[in-house]
Amino acid sequence: MNEESRIALLIDAENISAQYADYIMDEVSNYGTCSYKRIYGSWDRIVKTKWEGEINKNSLKPMMQFNNTRGKNASDSALIIDAMDILYTGYVDGFCIVSSDSDFTALARRLMEAGMMVIGMGESDKATEALENAYDKFVYIDVLATQAEEEKAEEKKAQAQAAKASNTRQKQSQTQTQSRNNAGSIPSKKTLENRITQIIKENDDKSKLTDLGQIGNELNRIFKNFDVRYYGRKGGRKYKYLKDFVKDIKSLQLDETEGNRVYVSLKK
């Protein structure tokens, strides 16, 4: 999707913390423009809570519900009904559903069947594998938030050190980095390297070159929660682009053509 794509952003306030609001808005902007920005929850989960301030700040439309029956979540039903209504208007190109609730698995599948691009966002320790696989892509919003906060802390630390003319830098904790990389079911670097190698060998058997774009598409198809931003590089920073991630794999070689096409092959 590009910046001209129209996205319906639907947030389950009863399942996602307001602390992730800014990260949600930043992430969804990568896929297009929000034609709908709605948030669902019971009155007590929105009014006089942190979500109330985020609603005004990010211009979200609150769709508050009353749970008429104990044990039944009216907000989930309202979100599903609205999603189908929006689908039939034909005014959007895709959906972003923000919730770790597995009850939305069937909804995600139905929207994909209708030809929609469907993005999911949730927390790494709550989302099930079945929920993640129901989406075109599933983003661990808690992992991205943690990394963003750590990068901010690192920047402040670096500024303080520069002001004091310090010649030393403290290394980021490798233990914390490894812990973040293992959040949820994020595939290991070795698993990704093996899959990329397999893709290249399959293309070699057909006398075909392996385009970097094909690798990105295949990794996203197989690992719905794959995102290079989850992985650390030398110095403790995170990758931003697939090209840099693949380039750092010692067994692979990148070749760029004059037309800015990037091909990947096995080092000999």
Results as ranks from 00 to 15, higher is better:
residue 235 G to Y: 10
residue 207 S to E: 14
residue 40 Y to S: 04
residue 139 V to H: 03
residue 125 D to F: 10
residue 241 Y to I: 13
residue 188 S to C: 05
residue 172 Q to P: 06
residue 183 A to W: 07
residue 265 S to W: 01
residue 95 F to M: 08
residue 222 I to A: 07
residue 244 D to A: 15
residue 38 R to N: 10
residue 154 E to V: 03
residue 188 S to G: 05
residue 214 Q to P: 00
residue 183 A to L: 14
residue 6 R to C: 01
residue 35 S to W: 02
residue 73 N to G: 03
residue 243 K to I: 13
residue 82 D to Y: 10
residue 83 A to H: 01
residue 244 D to C: 07
residue 186 I to Y: 03
residue 177 T to K: 11
residue 50 K to N: 12
residue 225 N to W: 00
residue 83 A to S: 15
residue 88 Y to K: 08
residue 18 A to P: 14
residue 222 I to Q: 08
residue 138 F to V: 07
residue 140 Y to F: 15
residue 242 L to E: 04
residue 33 T to F: 06
residue 16 I to H: 12
residue 264 V to K: 02
residue 204 D to M: 13
residue 134 A to L: 09
residue 77 S to C: 03
residue 263 Y to L: 09
residue 242 L to R: 06
residue 162 A to E: 15
residue 42 S to P: 00
residue 48 K to Q: 13
residue 33 T to Y: 11
residue 174 Q to H: 10
residue 218 E to R: 11
residue 201 K to Y: 05
residue 49 T to E: 04
residue 221 R to V: 03
residue 268 K to M: 03
residue 124 S to R: 10
residue 84 M to Q: 05
residue 232 G to N: 13
residue 70 R to P: 02
residue 68 N to I: 00
residue 244 D to Y: 12
residue 254 L to S: 11
residue 63 M to D: 08
residue 267 K to C: 07
residue 181 N to G: 15
residue 237 R to Q: 14
residue 1 M to T: 07
residue 86 I to T: 07
residue 97 I to Q: 02
residue 222 I to Y: 14
residue 183 A to D: 08
residue 169 R to S: 12
residue 30 N to E: 13
residue 6 R to V: 11
residue 261 R to I: 00
residue 1 M to Y: 03
residue 244 D to R: 04
residue 102 S to Q: 12
residue 18 A to S: 15
residue 209 L to T: 09
residue 201 K to S: 11
residue 37 K to D: 03
residue 187 P to N: 12
residue 209 L to E: 13
residue 168 T to P: 01
residue 263 Y to G: 06
residue 59 S to F: 11
residue 33 T to L: 06
residue 249 I to W: 00
residue 149 E to H: 11
residue 26 D to H: 09
residue 72 K to P: 08
residue 132 E to A: 13
residue 206 K to Y: 04
residue 238 K to S: 09
residue 5 S to T: 04
residue 53 G to L: 09
residue 55 I to D: 00
residue 87 L to M: 13
residue 2 N to L: 04
residue 51 W to M: 07
residue 198 Q to I: 00
residue 239 Y to N: 10
residue 24 I to C: 08
residue 227 D to P: 04
residue 167 N to R: 13
residue 218 E to L: 01
residue 177 T to C: 05
residue 132 E to H: 02
residue 61 K to V: 12
residue 124 S to G: 08
residue 145 A to C: 04
residue 54 E to T: 05
residue 178 Q to T: 02
residue 194 N to A: 14
residue 128 T to C: 04
residue 76 D to Q: 12
residue 250 K to F: 02
residue 48 K to W: 03
residue 151 E to I: 15
residue 29 S to C: 04
residue 120 G to L: 08
residue 159 Q to L: 15
residue 98 V to W: 00
residue 103 D to P: 00
residue 5 S to P: 02
residue 151 E to C: 04
residue 174 Q to I: 05
residue 122 G to N: 08
residue 90 G to V: 10
residue 25 M to I: 14
residue 60 L to N: 03
residue 229 R to W: 05
residue 14 E to H: 02
residue 264 V to F: 05
residue 184 G to C: 07
residue 127 A to Y: 01
residue 69 T to E: 14
residue 35 S to I: 09
residue 9 L to R: 10
residue 118 V to M: 03
residue 265 S to C: 06
residue 21 A to G: 06
residue 138 F to M: 06
residue 256 E to G: 02
residue 242 L to Q: 06
